[in-house]
């Protein structure tokens, strides 16, 4: 009976994951990300490069509204660097003593300033399309990290002949429906990395994906390191519980 139960439980779990993977079948490229293992975390240098790609390219259209400038400390930046970065952006504040609204440079406690004041303004500047907020993008798509990477590299110069592109749309290998409003954002050498890494399309796509994976799950490293301790503790406790149970039941025939 125990075997039977295990087999059924396994089949059930497999069923859940295959159920989650259903939908239109588009095979995403599978990348071996540095933070996927149970013990591994982000590469800070990569996150910094990813921030650079986000800042110079994505941020033109996409907001990152759930992330605060102070969170950039996770990427290895110091207080002054974060202040300087935030200072590049203007936020509206107020009202002041005169009752007037005013703009001031952003400070570390502000959230990332959005490129557009509202959705309508964003649509008006983007041919009617709304560039979504990227804070949770990695968690909001199936296989989110690979999906995001695929979005960056999936453009082709020529659409296959059987696809009729709509006005202002671009052909994309991995996007559902294969037509995407976003023009190809990255290509070789779009940014010039300050750390000297060669800015190939692939490198930039991976870096910005890493940055957005961090933005979606800033707790990831803390979560895993606490998780290892909790599981170790429970394992020891389990061994003790089994020993206690055996000792208590030693003289009972059952």
């Amino acid at each position: 009976m125990r075997m039977k139960v295990l087999v059924i439980a396994a089949a059930f779990l497999a069923g859940i994951s295959s159920a989650q993977a259903s939908g239109e079948k588009i095979e995403l490229p599978q990348i071996d990300w540095s933070w996927k293992g149970p013990f591994s975390g982000f590469d800070k240098a990569q996150l910094q490069r990813g921030l650079q790609v986000y800042t110079e390219v994505c941020a033109t259209c996409h907001s990152l509204g759930l992330v605060a400038y102070r969170d950039l400390a996770d990427l290895g930046y110091g207080e002054e660097e974060i202040k300087a970065y935030a200072g590049n952006y203007e936020v509206q504040d107020g009202p002041d003593d005169e009752g007037e609204m005013y703009t001031r440079p952003a400070i570390p406690s502000d959230r990332f300033v959005a490129p557009f004041p509202n959705e309508n303004a964003a649509r008006a500047s983007n041919n009617g399309a709304y560039p979504p907020d990227l804070s949770l993008m990695v968690k909001a798509r199936k296989d989110g990290t690979n999906y995001l990477y695929a979005m960056m590299i999936g453009y082709a110069d020529e659409a296959p002949e059987d696809i009729q592109l709509m006005e202002g749309m671009n052909y994309h290998k991995y996007f559902a429906g294969h037509q995407i409003a976003m023009p190809q954002p990255l290509s070789d050498g779009v940014v010039e990395y300050t750390d000297g890494t060669e800015a190939t399309l692939d490198q930039q796509a991976k870096d910005v994906t890493a940055f957005l994976a961090w933005a979606a799950e800033p707790e990831l490293e803390e979560r895993k390191s606490l998780g290892i301790k909790v599981l170790l503790f429970l394992f020891v406790l389990f061994v003790m519980a089994v020993a206690v149970k055996k000792a208590v039941w030693r003289d009972i025939k059952h």
């Binding site: 998780g227 290892i228 909790v230 599981l231 429970l234 406790l237 389990f238």
Partner: peptide
């Protein structure tokens, strides 16, 4: 004693999801 064995094993599975596949 017997429930404790099951409980700790269960918490192990629970924690595995919470910390590694939330």
């Amino acid at each position: 004693a017997k429930d404790s064995v099951g409980l700790v094993l269960f918490l192990f599975v629970f924690a595995a999801f919470v910390f590694f596949a939330p």
